[in-house]
């Protein structure tokens, strides 16, 4: 297998041997890839500063097995690290991809969604809104898309003024005929569909929904970025800005 100057972002890096790195990267055409970057931790390497998370890259690599050997790395634009206060949100997005996106499964739309969430996190956009939109797009790209415009059982269009019970892996159902599920207003379902989450109430409901939906596919294993946020928040009440992702 081979990639040639493929746009990519490093999601995670781990030291490997004495001077090498093991990279997990996301690309539009090959999905998530494992790469070995040989010798990049040595003093003389030019790529050391480049192969970091949130840096738009062009990568070439080749290899036979699961892991490719990195042959070329070039920068493909200004780095997009979220500011320190939003760093955990950036890592949270990376962790979602690491956990949910299988290797070698191409999702060009997901790559675009990843790029736009990073741009939103580095810009003035509201952090929570950016994360919710990414979560919604991630679910859709992976084939677990939320049903947001029609009732699951009857197919009737969603009405903004009504309240529904969202049953995971099925969709919004009428409140009277179903038990369980997540109570959510039609307004919030439609707003999430249109990715217009400026309203605080809508945002809160959208978060409950995407979080529960992601939970199904995360199979109950907690996200480490969420745990770290909780740990930092426990330390002092206002050490981190309140609840971006949990």
């Amino acid at each position: 297998m081979q990639i040639v100057l493929q746009p990519a972002f490093v999601l995670h890096r781990r030291p490997y041997r004495d001077t090498s790195l093991l990279l997990d990267a996301v690309t539009p055409e090959q999905g998530r890839l494992g790469l070995v970057a040989r010798g990049v931790r040595s003093r003389r390497s030019r790529w050391q500063g480049l192969l970091q998370p949130f840096q738009p890259l062009l990568l070439s690599g080749a290899g036979k097995g699961e892991l490719l050997t990195l042959t070329v790395a070039e920068e493909a634009g200004r780095p997009l690290p979220p500011p320190p206060a939003r760093w955990l949100s950036g890592l949270y997005v990376n962790e979602l991809l690491l956990r949910l996106l299988p290797r070698h499964d191409p999702h060009p739309g997901l790559f675009a969604a990843y790029q736009s969430v990073l741009e939103a996190l580095t810009g003035p956009a509201a952090e929570e809104v950016a994360l919710r939109i990414f979560e919604k797009r991630l679910l859709a790209e992976l084939g677990y898309g939320l049903l947001l415009d029609a009732e699951a059982d009857s197919g009737a269009p969603i009405v903004a003024e009504r309240v529904y019970r969202y049953v995971l892996e099925r969709g919004p159902c009428s409140v009277t005929r179903t038990a369980g599920g997540i109570l959510i207003s039609g307004k919030s379902l439609l707003a999430l569909r249109q990715e217009n989450l400026a309203d605080a109430g809508v945002l809160r409901e959208a978060k409950r929904l995407t979080r529960a939906a992601l939970g199904v596919y995360l199979q109950g294993r907690p996200l480490r970025t969420r745990e770290l946020l909780a740990a930092l928040r426990r330390r002092t009440g206002n050490l981190t800005p309140r609840g971006e992702m949990s």
Binding site: P84, T236, L239
Partner: peptide, 18 residues
Amino acid sequence: PTVEGGATAHYIAELARE
């Protein structure tokens, strides 16, 4: 001066300010 190093510094700075 890595992304992680910067974030670590940020949290410690918050702590110091408190």
